[in-house]
Design a binder for these strands. Structure first.
Lengths: 174, 174
DNA sequence: AGTGAATGATTTGGGGGCTAACCACCGGGC
DNA sequence: GCCCGGTGGTTAGCCCCCAAATCATTCACT
């Protein structure tokens, strides 16, 4: 009478694949998968938190960039292109983010004084109040998220991520 | 005559924000941002590579999971729920992925022998040929991506990611 | 058996992101 | 002065993903 086979772990499957594909580097794949998984979850968590305040991760990124610029450099505003660059999204996406932020009364667009192709983006008082409410708890949560890593480990993490990042171009090569 | 002010770095803006928000943990935020950035870029790079073969990152994940299962465990197939779990997407999303994979002739759906609510998903010969073509180069690329990290560093990276992952629930708490 | 809770897949509706194509404007070279 | 490549923002169309609601089936309990 047959007994059900023991379950095979992900790593065992990888090992078997490696026999057929000599290019397969098991620890490289494991690390890459771990990275993609965590970031997927982390991005989802951000999205979930922000949705409680009527924001999305992308919209929040824009607001906080404007807020920190306002605090440090005064109300000069930023251009959509600068915001897109800073938020790691395309300019087209930034247009959409700014549209909904403006519709919600959180930012305003003002003519750029020197270049009529552009405009500058500014936080409204409503957005400033929202952020003052939001940020203390948000900063606490991020601090908690990283609280199991001491300063050395945080530095190590950033260094390792930078090393991977440096190889991205070759990953994308023709 | 006024001279343009020197540009302020991201880290300087963070430091100034920290004065107003004592909860702000600058190195925690820096590490979190680094993680989100790299993963965003990495996910985009995956998507870009896969699109050259008419796949997306999500569809590829499904195919390779089926492929490694086929190699290790024979052609038993997997259920949509198993695939969703394994690919870290919702079951609704999996339905859509499988629809397009089936339309492209890469997978087939077969009645589940024991439970008529489910079915099993199987790779077609066409998909197997595609993967045999694709995987050597793909595995090489992933190996290159991680080639600046030695084995110790890879282990460290996974450990650090695991630590962060363990704190995700508290990040999401009410 | 019979009923209700649980499980699995799908449909629907919506948001976010991207690329490619577009128009408006700037600025340098002739 | 005028043209023309470069730059900035927007639009249109597409894909991916999700949550919530829906439908079918199974399972446990009486």
């Amino acid at each position: 009478m047959s007994v059900s086979a023991p379950p095979i772990t992900r790593y065992e499957r990888l090992q078997r694949l490696a026999r057929r594909f000599p290019q397969l580097d098991a620890t490289a794949i494991e690390s890459c998968v771990a990275l993609l998984r965590l970031s997927n979850e982390l991005a989802g968590a951000y999205e979930a938190r922000m949705s409680r305040h009527g924001l999305s991760s992308g919209r929040f990124t824009v607001l906080i960039r404007l807020f920190s610029s306002l605090e440090s450099e005064g109300d000069q505003g930023l251009t959509p292109a600068e915001l897109a660059e800073n938020s790691c999204v395309s300019r087209a996406t930034m247009t959409g983010l700014l549209d909904t932020l403006e519709k919600d009364g959180l930012i305003s667009r003002q003519d750029h004084p020197e270049d009529r192709r552009m405009y500058t983006v500014h936080l409204t008082p409503k957005a400033q109040r929202l952020l003052e409410d939001l940020l203390p708890e948000h900063f606490s949560r991020v601090a908690t998220l990283m609280s199991d890593l001491d300063e050395t480990e945080r530095t190590t993490l950033r260094e390792l991520l930078t090393k991977v990042s440096g190889r991205l171009p070759s990953f994308l090569e023709p």
